[in-house]
Every structure is written in C-alpha cells, then in structure tokens.
Write a protein that binds this DNA or RNA. Sequence first.
RNA 1: GGCGCUAUCGUCUAAUGGUUAGGACGGAGCCCUCUCAAGGCUCAAAUACGGGUUCGACUCCCGUUAGCGCCGCCA
Length: 488
Amino acid sequence: MPRVRFAPSPTGFLHIGSARTFVFNWLYARRTGGTMILRIDDTDVDRNTAESEASIFEGLRWLELDWDEEYRQSERLELHRQTAEAIFRKGLAYRDFTPAGAADDEKPRGEGWLFNPGMRELTAEESDRRAAAGEPFVLRFKVPRETLREIRFRDAVYGEQSKSTADIEDFALLRSNGLPTYHMASCADDIDLRVSHIIRGQDHLTNTFKHILIFEAVGAAQPEFAHLPLLIAPDGSKLSKRRHGPVVSVTTYRDAGFLPHAFVNFICLLGWSPKDNREVMSRQDLIDAFSFEGINRANAVVNFREDDPFDPKAMWLNAQHIMALPAGELADRLFPFLCEAGYKVDREKLLAVVPLIRERIKTLRDAVAVADFFFLEQLAPYDPTELIPQKGDAAMALAALEHAREVLSQTAFTHEELEAALRAEAGRMGVKTGQMFQPIRVAVCGRKTAPPLFETLAMLGRETTLERIGQAIQKLSAHMSAHSAQKP
RNA sequence: GGCGCUAUCGUCUAAUGGUUAGGACGGAGCCCUCUCAAGGCUCAAAUACGGGUUCGACUCCCGUUAGCGCCGCCA
C-alpha cells in the first residue's frame, strides 16, 4: 500500500500551493487505499511559529481533509542525527569547519559553489581532533567527485531525470548547532516512515538528486517521485504573501464564502486534468479520476487581480457547487454568514429562502447582500426614484403601488394567486407587467435586482409586504411633493 | 554564472505523427424572461520563434528566446 506524506514547515499560514500539494497526496492515498501522513517539518526553530502551525491545521480542517498518521520532526531529531552519523561513519560525509557566513564574503553572487576548499581532504585524525576541541562544524555530504557519475530517477510527472555529480554541491546534513537540515531530516523521516511516493512541489525537483544520494548512502530503497508544477501569480512570479497579499492564504477563501469542496475542485484543476472535459467534480469524482498522468508540467497561473482577488474560474466553480448542494446543507453553510451579518435567521425561513437565492450567489457571503430583505426588520434606505419603472414616471409608480396595495390586501399569498392577481391588475391599469412589478419589487426588496417577485412576496407574507409598500408610497409621495415644490 | 525544468486562446486545459487544434472560465451577441440570475445558442480568441526528421509535426530532434526552480548551517 502506498504511503504518502504532506510535510509543511510551520513558517507561515497554509498557502494555496501547499494546500494543493496536500490534496494531490491525499487524492493519491485515497484512490489507492494508501496511507496519508501529515508531518510537521519544524526543524528550523528560529522560523517556526505556533500561529503558523495552527493555521495549517485550521486550513486543513476547513478543507475537510484528513490524514492517517501524524508526526513532528522536532520529536525525531535523534533519528536524524543517527542517520547523519551513519553516513559519516561510512565515510560519505565530512566535517566542514568553515565558520558560518565566511563564504558570503568571497561568494561572487550565485556562482556554482560546490564545497569549501580544504575541508573534504581533512584527515580523520585532524577532523576528530578539531571536533573534540569543540570547534563548530557542519556535516556535509561528500558528493562523489573523483569518479563522476550521473544520478538518475524517473519522475512520475517529469519523466527521466539525470544530473551529474559534478553539478551537485556538498550539501549540509547537520548544522553547526547539531540540528539536521531539511534534506537530512526529510530523507531520514521518509525512510523511517516508509514513504513510498514523494509528491511535492517542482521546486524540489533538483533537490531530489541530493535526496537520492542520501537514500543510497543509507542503503534505503528509492521511493517514487512525483513533482507538481508550481502555482504562480499572473505576472509569472511565485505566489508570496508579501507581494500578493491574502489571496495566497486558504483562510481567505474560507472567509470569502467558498465551499471547501469547490476550493479543492479549483486547485485540482490547476496543473491537473481528468482529460475528459469534466470540470465540476465532487470529491469522489476527483478521487476516482486522479492519476499522475493527468498532471501537467507547466506552472499554472492563479488568475487574480488587484480589483478582483479571486480567480473567476474559482468563483464559477463555487457557484456550481453551491447550486449542486442539497438545500438543507446549503442552509447550514449559509447560516453563520447571515448570523455574522446580524440577521435574525431561523432555519425554517432560511430553508425557504435558499431556493430563491442559490442561483444568485457565487459565494456564501454573497447571501448577506442578496437576501438581506428577507431577514431585516427594516429595509435599508433606498433612493425613491428607484421605484419609478422604465418608461414610466413617479405618478405611474405611485399608482402601481396603490393598486398593488389594494389587490394584495385581498389576495392569497401563494405564487400562483399573486401572479394572477398582479398580472390582471397590470392589465386593468394598462401598463406593462414590468412597469407594475418593478415598483413593488423595489418597495419590498429595496433594490431593482432581486429574486423573482411572486416567490419573494409569498415568502415575505402579507403583513411585511403591505407594510413595505405603504412605506414606499410615503417615500414616493414625499419625493414627488419635494420635487414639485422645488420646480413649480 | 552553472545545472535542471517548462512553453497550445487573456486564464485553466484537451489533442501521446494524420482533428476545420476540442472543452471550460472570462469577454461579445442572441434567446428565455417581472428585474437579476440560472439555462440554451452563436461569435471572437492559441500551438513562442527558427531550423531539421517525416508523405504528414502542437506532438520527435537541434538551436534561439522567454519564464520558473535549485545552487544556504531556509524549507
């Protein structure tokens, strides 16, 4: 059974790219009946924060993603140290006593550094003596140089890869403070946890050659590798909080009212395709369709803008998932957003409102603006001229409202009855239905764009409807007299 | 600079030597219609460039260009 892992370092909030890496690992595990491991890679004590770790768990919980085993690298340092020690004893690593930062001075900006001169060649006696004397050192892997060879592996996404040892630097295994580096800790854990498939970002593609050297040195079997194309910003740069702000954090999507399943659907489609033109996919659909062959090799742009922080496709997918959700579940999802907005909502009423708004919201939060008039006692102030229909005037609006008030006071508040009565009244008045309906709509909703009128009236009930129409008549009358007083 | 990776509509992608280069988002338009949506239909929109190989190239090879990644005692 495959064993895969997601290994975030808690140095920032859960990033959209990290979330995608988790999802691809998870999909593979769930598809194959394998094991999903969450490993917190917290060996960089200076940069780790508790908030960051909390954000990772918070994000994963929101996404409704689970895992089967959980580890923390900081609790496994002894294993890392012992593994490094074993490599050292085999003569495949050496102590480098070059003081930290010393290389910075002579480093001619990004030249191909391979190792610090003099340190590889230190005799065992000399090395032991200096170490015993307490001189700090970093333990480096002794990459084969005398006899060059090609390190090879087959990536499940990028295909055959090879690199000459002549182009691989003597990377560090242990820092001078005794803590393992990422490479050491990661490989030691992957070996110990029997990780069978390493699925991670493409930024690790060239690191993989180093990791293979470690696997070989330890005598461990090589796992399968699958590197994922990176998520990038519209300008081609990598996503970063500093440059791109909160759009890279998954909690931003949660707070904006994305459905977790829609969000996962969206990030899966970035760099992966089921190849059959499907796009709106349930979690089970994704599990069933996932394969490494479907993963693309080019980086994918998250198409956000300054004025529109969410990728339009993410919005569309969210709307699709909202429309596909059973009414009861959608009501549950909407509930916290409406409560947070200060609306007085009860589940019964919300359940009735859901069918009226579900096609009109792209995010859960949209409901706050779209459904306000269902829950607010008092309508927000609106411009009385909104009551005036197309190709009509204030007098027409006033007449429509007064007639409507009359008719509605004696009509049953059902969709059919309301529609029949109001259409008939428009006919009697000799106005178009739209001219009749708009003033009523604005009177009860406070704006021109709203859900269909009759369902809305039925939902609101006679009392509220008549009250709001009465208020509209007052507003309009006041407006008319003010208007005519000003311009006699 | 060295090494590695990548390149199809604006964006996400399909087409594993033979298609009028397909789908989706977004855009434009039409239909439906009590407004707004939703839905349906139509249109515009791409193989980075240059060489090969081949009867035939988005697809294979070489080069150019561009982008990204790694080259830390970060991960």
